[in-house]
C-alpha cells in the first residue's frame, strides 16, 4: 500500500473546480409503437432483426440454452446444453434503447452472462413495454448489478477495414417483442 500513498500525495491537489452539469437532452414523447419502429430500423442497420415466436421455434431446433424468464414466456424448460456447446442463447433484456438499437441485459438469478455471448445466435425475448427512447433514459434506470449493453451483432474491421460479423460473440441477433 506504500504505492497508494505515494501516488495520492504526488497528484495535484487543486480540487474544487466546479462540476459542469450535463444538461439532460429533451425527452422525445414517442409512443411505444414509434419507439419499436425506430429500434427495428436501427437493429437492421446493425445486421440484426426483429423476429416472431414462430421464428424462435425454428431456431430452437439447434442446441441451445434459455434463461429463466424467457423460458417461462416461451413455456419451455430453462437451461439446456452445456454453455460452450450451445449454438443458440435465448435471454430476456432489461431495456431496449430505440435511438441506437441497443439492449441492456443485467446479471441476476437465472440470467447467465454467457447465454448472450458464446453462442452464434442470440435470441432476445423482449416484453414490449421495456423500451425507452434515449440512452440517457436507459442509463438513469441501470441495474446496480453487472450489466452489458449490446448494440448489434459481434463485429470486427481489423482486416483491411472490412466488416465481418460474429467474430467472437453472436453474429446473429433476433429480437422478439412479446
Amino acid at each position: 500500500m506504500a504505492d497508494r500513498d505515494d501516488i495520492l500525495n504526488a497528484l495535484p491537489q487543486t480540487g474544487k473546480k466546479a462540476r459542469v452539469p450535463v444538461p439532460a437532452p429533451p425527452l422525445p414523447s414517442l409512443t411505444s409503437d414509434a419507439m419499436w419502429q425506430i429500434f427495428g430500423a436501427r437493429l437492421e442497420e446493425l445486421g440484426g432483426r426483429l423476429g416472431t415466436l414462430e421464428d424462435v421455434e425454428v431456431i430452437l431446433s439447434r442446441p441451445h440454452v434459455i434463461d429463466q424468464e424467457s423460458a417461462t414466456r416461451l413455456g419451455r424448460q430453462p437451461g439446456g446444453v452445456p454453455i460452450w456447446e450451445a449454438e443458440v442463447g435465448v435471454t430476456t433484456a432489461d431495456l431496449a434503447v430505440a435511438e441506437i438499437g441497443s439492449l441492456l441485459i443485467s446479471t441476476g438469478p437465472g440470467r447467465p452472462r454467457m447465454a448472450s455471448l458464446s453462442p452464434v445466435v442470440h435470441v432476445v425475448v423482449m416484453p414490449k413495454e421495456r423500451i425507452v427512447a434515449t440512452l440517457e433514459e436507459a442509463f438513469a434506470r441501470l441495474s446496480d448489478r453487472s450489466t452489458v449493453m449490446i448494440t448489434g451483432p459481434s463485429r470486427t474491421a481489423d482486416i483491411e477495414h472490412v466488416l465481418v460479423r460474429g467474430v467472437h460473440g453472436p453474429g446473429d441477433i433476433v429480437v422478439v417483442p412479446v
Binding site: 438499437g101 441497443s102 441501470l142 452489458v148 460473440g169
Partner: peptide, 9 residues
Amino acid sequence: QRMTVYTHL
C-alpha cells in the same frame, strides 16, 4: 459507429 457493440459495466 453510433455505439460500440458491447458496453460492459
